[in-house]
Design a protein around this nucleic acid. Structure first.
Lengths: 335, 335
DNA sequence: CTGAAAGCGCTTACAG
DNA sequence: CTGAAAGCGCTTACAG
């Protein structure tokens, strides 16, 4: 049907072996003249390599499969950009597979799609595999690396931000601005949510170091979504909280918009510092102060580790970006 | 290395032919008992099919390659969700390739990655191919279909919204709300931007029908980005425009935020109606009234057309979502 | 520098 | 219902 190396061989009079060698650039195995003839014939015939055949015989591949949550994680684009950058530098190809949103079946399909052909490795971008799917992945004996997620299980390698540090830093920042009644909103703290737990621990540590007794209604759990922010704010309006740390930009915006509905002003009535720092922070009014994660770097380095076969966990740096959603709190001003 | 049908054949005592038949479910070619034995052995050995081999021999594939702009088109997720839905229904797989942002090389890499293996077809999501790359695509003799973009060239098949209608409807809506000095911001009108031209034509038609003479400074061209919105608004502040149609949600938000900087209130000082209607519209204050496109449907139907081999162009419906960024304009109130 | 040949893992007429 | 055999498009020792 389509043109193969056989056609080129016929046209040039060389054997398929020779054609194959020049096309895959096995330097030293052919003369310049031969190469010219072959390349000429290739373009004339409109030859396109069939990688399925190559992968079959070499049992290797230069494609990296990236599995991403199709969820509202608006930062995955940045991670993917980082992945593409590194992949391009190493002449690797990348294909992306959507794993649905907390959908076991969709996750399995994505995984299978990746696994049932020869690939270099798999990058999992903030996807928390269901146990069965994790087993499936492990059984394939293909390198894999997690990005923007962490686990207690030390057998799994990942690169992400230091979530404990994030929780701690955000809290400390607010304390330094005079706040002592500080909410934490939109994350989960059950054992499966390692990220949520780490951030919560960092938050509690900062509180403790500053002799602040944590109150239960300061923690409003959620699923990192806009709706979580809306809901959390309804609860906060019943509390004495003067500032809140939000688990994602979307949560932060939920809090912000619910404040508007309640007739509350940010930052005058409530300060917000959000975690992630995507461009959403600058789209809303007031722009949200954030602990900004280096998503590009996560993707870039994660790809590097995958290719290098590194068996380690790594952290990318985080940056505090001051915008306009946090106000210094003066005790005398209140009540 | 990994387990093949040969291993299963050895273990069960059947031939590879028979194993292949039960594994690919060629009903009628084997007894139930045989099937049971083969399946049992398959799971015991941890067999995983090598699709590269299957694709090589069958010369077909069940994977659809989706090429997307890694640009700030925040609606591509919705399109992809629609694609996945239809693909799942038809038991097709989908892989996604990022084509960079107006990057000829990245575009070519994405295209090549798709083309150099057997695939069912290619879906191009709001990617405008460079001429060379379009040639490359055409020369591959693989079905392809464009989504969320349209062309003058009738040889190219696409599904998108009716952009002329969008321009017309948005303008008409504003006129019905008393506006007669109406801006159009953030789109391009050079010949290569077919979408921009269509919207501009619809806009002009509505103006003409209502005896409004278009003024040049009402049109602020741009590239559908947030920055385009910011820039456009700086110009509008020198004009007498009372309402503006924005080419994307991001442009709308740019206009909105620039208004804030200028001390202008939306919608009291300026009304905004935006095109796209993604969730961004509800994140900002005031929420933006929009002409909402049905991106999910575009993906869903586009996939259907690709699979069916339809050689046609199609349009999905558009919906006007009233939120809070448009105010009825009363002439007497002004000045 | 070049070619003949074997083989990657699968599928599918063909013959029984 | 089952098997032997050819073949998909490529690569790569092996021999020259």
């Amino acid at each position: 049907m389509s043109v193969t190396i056989k056609d080129i061989a016929k046209k040039t009079g060389f054997s398929v072996a020779t054609v194959s060698r020049v096309l895959s650039n096995k330097t030293g195995f052919f003369s310049q003249e031969t190469a010219n003839a072959v390349h000429k014939a290739a373009v004339e015939l409109g030859y396109k390599k069939n990688m399925a055949a190559t992968e079959l015989v070499t049992q290797t591949s230069n494609v990296i499969a990236v599995i991403v949550n199709s969820t509202k994680t608006n930062f995955s684009n940045q991670i993917i950009t980082g992945i593409q950058k590194k992949a391009a530098e190493m002449s690797k190809r990348v294909i992306i597979l959507y794993a649905g949103d907390h959908d076991q079946v969709a996750q399995k399909i994505a995984l299978t799609t990746a696994l049932e052909r020869p690939i270099l490795g798999i990058l999992l971008v903030s996807v928390d595999l269901y146990p069965k799917n994790l087993l499936l992945l492990k059984s394939a004996h293909i390198p894999f690396f997690f990005i923007s997620i962490s686990f207690k299980d030390t057998g799994l390698n990942y690169i992400t931000s230091d979530d404990y540090q994030i929780g701690y830093t955000a809290t400390k920042y607010l304390i330094n601005h005079g706040h002592r009644k500080i909410g934490l909103a939109g994350l989960g703290i059950d054992p499966s949510d390692h990220t949520g737990n780490l951030r919560f621990n960092g938050y509690q540590q900062a509180l403790t170091e500053n002799n602040i007794a944590f109150q239960h209604d300061w923690l409003q759990i959620g699923d990192y979504s806009y709706e979580s922010g809306l809901t959390a704010m309804k609860s906060y309006s019943q509390t004495n909280v003067t500032a809140v740390i939000t688990a994602s930009d979307l949560v932060g915006i939920g809090i912000l918009n619910q404040c508007t509905k309640l007739g509350l002003n940010v930052p005058n009535d409530l300060s917000i510092i959000t975690i992630d720092g995507t461009n959403l922070c600058q789209l809303v009014q007031p722009p949200l102060t954030s602990i900004t994660q280096n998503f590009f770097q996560m993707g870039y380095l994660g790809t590097n580790y995958l290719i290098a076969g590194s068996k380690k966990n790594a952290y990318t740096n985080v940056q505090l970006c001051q915008r306009s959603s946090v106000k210094t709190y003066h005790f005398k001003n209140s009540i």
